[in-house]
Amino acid sequence: MRSDTDLVDKVFNDLRWDLGVDNDAIAVSAEASTVPLHGIVGSLREMRAAKKSL
């Protein structure tokens, strides 16, 4: 099992390399291996792309 810090790093890096997501608009956190994303996206497509990073 990955630590929360490892999970945040992985999701953040996945978002950073996904050209369909404005990663500056999305905050990534983790608690007890749950990774919620917070922020505002410009479209449903962008929201789906961000969710795929989880």
Rank of each mutant, 00 (worst) to 15 (best):
M1W: 06
M1G: 12
M1L: 14
R2W: 09
R2F: 04
R2T: 10
R2M: 13
R2G: 03
S3E: 09
S3V: 09
S3Q: 07
S3F: 03
S3T: 06
T5I: 04
T5C: 05
T5W: 07
T5H: 14
D6R: 04
L7F: 05
L7Q: 01
L7S: 05
V8T: 13
V8I: 15
D9C: 14
D9Q: 04
D9I: 02
K10L: 15
K10H: 13
V11N: 00
F12H: 14
F12P: 03
F12A: 15
F12N: 14
F12V: 15
N13S: 12
N13I: 15
N13L: 12
N13T: 12
N13V: 12
D14P: 01
D14T: 11
D14Q: 05
D14F: 13
D14K: 04
D14R: 03
L15Y: 00
R16Q: 07
R16P: 03
R16D: 02
R16A: 08
W17S: 11
W17Y: 13
W17F: 10
D18Q: 02
D18E: 01
L19K: 15
L19P: 03
G20W: 11
G20S: 15
G20F: 11
V21R: 02
D22R: 05
N23V: 09
N23K: 05
N23P: 05
N23G: 10
D24Q: 05
D24I: 10
A25G: 12
I26Y: 00
A27H: 10
A27M: 11
A27S: 06
V28A: 06
V28Y: 00
V28C: 03
V28T: 10
S29N: 09
S29R: 05
S29K: 08
S29G: 07
A30G: 02
A30N: 01
E31C: 12
A32N: 07
A32K: 06
A32Q: 11
A32G: 14
S33T: 00
S33W: 00
S33K: 07
T34D: 10
T34R: 08
T34C: 13
T34S: 11
V35D: 01
V35C: 02
V35G: 00
V35I: 09
P36F: 02
P36Y: 01
P36C: 11
P36L: 15
L37F: 01
H38K: 11
H38N: 08
H38W: 13
H38P: 04
H38Y: 10
G39P: 05
I40D: 03
V41N: 02
V41G: 12
V41F: 08
G42M: 09
G42W: 13
G42Q: 14
G42L: 12
S43F: 09
S43L: 08
S43T: 10
S43R: 04
S43N: 08
L44T: 06
L44C: 14
R45Q: 08
R45F: 07
R45C: 13
E46Q: 08
E46V: 01
E46N: 07
E46A: 05
M47T: 03
M47W: 02
M47H: 03
R48A: 15
R48H: 04
A49T: 05
A50G: 11
A50I: 09
A50W: 01
K51P: 11
K51G: 02
K51A: 15
K51T: 08
K52E: 14
K52T: 08
K52R: 03
K52I: 13
L54E: 12
L54N: 08
